[in-house]
Design a protein around this nucleic acid. Structure first.
Lengths: 165, 165
DNA sequence: CGCCGGTACTTGACGCTTCAACGTCTCGCT
DNA sequence: AGCGAGACGTTGAAGCGTCAAGTACCGGCG
């Protein structure tokens, strides 16, 4: 396709060797880490990583309740994606959706007791996987660096992200 | 995540506050960055990020040729995934698959001239997106840290990774 | 009061990835 | 030789995410 750059297609600033290496590792991480996480959760709990995030985020809200759009933002997913996932989780009895009294356009997702138990049962294995795949490979100062770097990238990718770090 | 363990699992080592923050940003990055990359490539070139990786990796090989399994590893994907994608790319004329003479189980993927042109036309926009989303947010020393951290995580996630650093 | 733009969410269809099964070929062992 | 285990790649079905409507509702303005 023609190079549709708003302005003239000026010669781009290519990545130098270090940036290129950094990019290749990051690209590897973003394509392989989700699969590794999903594999552990699927095997041990029958959940996808996104499903787990939904349940986990909900478990930390007051009353274990959140609006669908709020929950979608917390889990880093689109509202449509959450809607599909919420139906499946509701079918499995892990959460309930109920109309919101204040604003009848809105829907509240509420974690059931079964959902809470599921999170409690699933969290240890998931944390172990995160530790094994990520933090076991890093020293404390690298974990700190990761936090800053991840935060900065996240600001670029998702300018409306909830928490500034 | 609940701090009480009510399940039959052994007490795990939970993430401390810093690790938790680092993990939340990394989780955000791995769920949102792929979509952002795909969006740019899809809009400007009609390619997914994985398709682009396949073409780009192939373009850097001698004779613009690689075995399917080799190419799958370079692009960080499964052989099955590559097989489906290669069929689509072949239909679009960007590569050809031909039987390998040495080992008749194997298949060689070869980038066509059209495929080469596609990479040349697509690369600048893609590099610009990577720069905008990642490196513009980081200083040189952070890029260096990212390279190390990414490499270490990648070793954990994909123990058979091709390039030792 | 009634309309109109915008918000909140849901739904259905389509495309892509995974998973499991298969066909083919290679190599080592007897 | 011939056999069996394993490597290479392809295929079809099933599941999940995205996209583009569609429904229901709020709030402001004429």
């Amino acid at each position: 396709m023609p190079t549709t750059d708003g302005a003239a297609t000026s010669e781009p600033r290519w990545l130098d060797a270090g940036e290129r290496a950094a990019w290749l590792s990051l690209a590897g991480v973003i394509t392989l880490l989700p699969g590794a996480l999903d594999a552990q959760l699927q095997r041990d709990a029958g959940l996808s990583h996104f499903e787990y995030m939904v349940l986990a985020m909900l478990s930390e809200r007051p009353d274990r309740t959140a609006r669908m759009s709020e929950l979608a933002a917390l889990a880093n997913g689109s509202l449509s994606r959450l809607s599909h996932v919420a139906r499946r989780l509701e079918d499995q009895g892990y959460l309930v959706r109920e109309a919101c009294a204040d604003d009848r356009r809105a829907t509240n997702a509420v974690l059931t007791d079964a959902g809470w138990d599921k999170v409690v049962a699933t969290a240890p294995g998931h944390v172990a996987a995160v530790r094994r795949l990520v933090f076991d490979a890093l020293g404390p100062e690298q974990a700190e660096q990761l936090r800053h770097i991840g935060g900065r990238i996240l600001d670029r990718v998702d300018p409306g992200g909830s928490c500034p770090t």
